[in-house]
Amino acid sequence: MYELGCFVAFILWLYRTVILLVAINSTAERNLRKVGMRHSWYTGSVVVMTYSAEYKHLLASVIKFAAIRLMFLVGIIFSWISVVWFFGSLIYLKGKDSGAPAEVKEFRWKLRNRDLSFDDLVTGLAKISGVDAPLEVLRNDMFENMRERGFNVSPMFSHLK
Score class of each variant (00 low, 15 high):
I63V: 00
K34F: 04
A60F: 10
T27F: 02
I63F: 02
R30H: 00
I68T: 00
V22T: 05
E106A: 06
T17F: 12
M49N: 13
F107E: 02
I11G: 12
R38Y: 11
S52R: 06
P101N: 05
T50R: 14
S26E: 00
G36D: 03
K56L: 11
Y55M: 06
W85C: 15
A102V: 12
A67M: 06
V74L: 12
E54D: 09
V22C: 08
F87S: 03
L70D: 01
I11M: 13
S79G: 15
N25D: 01
F86C: 10
E54V: 06
V22S: 04
Y55T: 07
I11Y: 13
L12R: 00
S45W: 14
S79V: 09
K94C: 15
G44L: 08
W41F: 08
V74T: 09
V22H: 07
S40G: 03
I11T: 10
W85Q: 14
Y15V: 09
R30F: 00
S89H: 14
K56C: 14
K96H: 08
L70K: 04
K105D: 05
I19T: 13
F78A: 10
M71R: 07
A66G: 01
V104H: 06
K34C: 05
S40K: 05
R114K: 14
A66H: 14
W109T: 11
R112E: 14
G88E: 05
V8Y: 04
V83I: 06
K64S: 09
F107V: 02
K110S: 11
S98A: 07
V22L: 00
S82A: 14
F10M: 14
V83T: 05
D119A: 11
I91Y: 02
A66W: 13
Y15A: 11
A28I: 03
L59P: 04
W80V: 07
T17N: 04
D115M: 11
I63C: 01
S89C: 13
F7E: 12
R112S: 09
F107T: 01
L14I: 10
S89I: 11
L70T: 04
I81Y: 15
H39C: 09
V22Y: 07
